[in-house]
Amino acid sequence: MGEVLVITSGKGGVGKTTTAANLGTGFALTGKKVALIDADIGLRNLDVVMGLENRIVYDLVDVVEGNCRLKQALIRDKRYETLYLLPAAQTRDKNAVNPEQMKKLCEELARDFDYVIIDCPAGIEQGFRNAIAGATEAIIVTTPEVSAVRDADRIIGLLESEGKSNPKLIINRIRPHMVKKGDMMDIDDIIDILAIDLLGVIPEDEYIVISTNRGEPAVTHPSSLASTAYKNIVRRLCGENVPLMSMEVRTSFLSKVKKFLKL
């Protein structure tokens, strides 16, 4: 049986879909068999981030309603053979499925895949309840903003009440130079409030925007900072002990010389 991970946050726009795409691709890079589920019915976009939009024929709701077999709805990634996507329906809403159906679906997928990664919609309503129903483990994504941390805290409470304890935390879009100046919450501030295990920290990286627009997850791009951070998270999830990436602002020798000459 594979593991079923749900990527959730409460607040929108903190990087759930990006994280799901990158972790899924990251696992596939190590040869693991991965299924990505887009649980954001009605506002699907994991397929866009993965660059698979034009391949969609059937979706999650079709599977649940029995219009097709699960195998027919799973889209194989164009780059990695072991990576599959189950897209969300765009013309329906969150009430088109219920938690029991999702649970059954996840169990079915977990039999065939090493990892099942669910991209949870924002909010705490039906869509959230559907997304977490079948998960064996939860990953909370937050950004270093008070509002995102608030929502993450609420989500942790809700997961607890559903019997899903010990979620793991990913802090996304941290800007080391702002943290250094004291203008941004640092990792310790966030951990102090949320008090859960830190899985990884993703630095702010412009390449994420480029990769999302291109439909190629950043993790495939070796020189991007976020790529390294996501790869580290994948290794940690596989049980390796990887230290947190250095968050020091990188200054090259050349820029130091330039700075020196200007002084």
């Binding site: 608030r150 929502d151 805290d153 609420r154 409470g157 809700l158 607890e160 409030i193 008090a195």
Partner: peptide, 26 residues
């Protein structure tokens, strides 16, 4: 004996002792 998260609410007629944090919104 746990941290109270945002959105969680405890009501008691008596005294309350929390072994943990009471987070914003709780």
């Amino acid at each position: 004996e746990k941290t109270l998260r945002g959105g969680q609410k405890v009501v008691s007629d008596y005294s309350v002792v929390v072994f943990g944090d009471v987070n914003p919104g709780a």
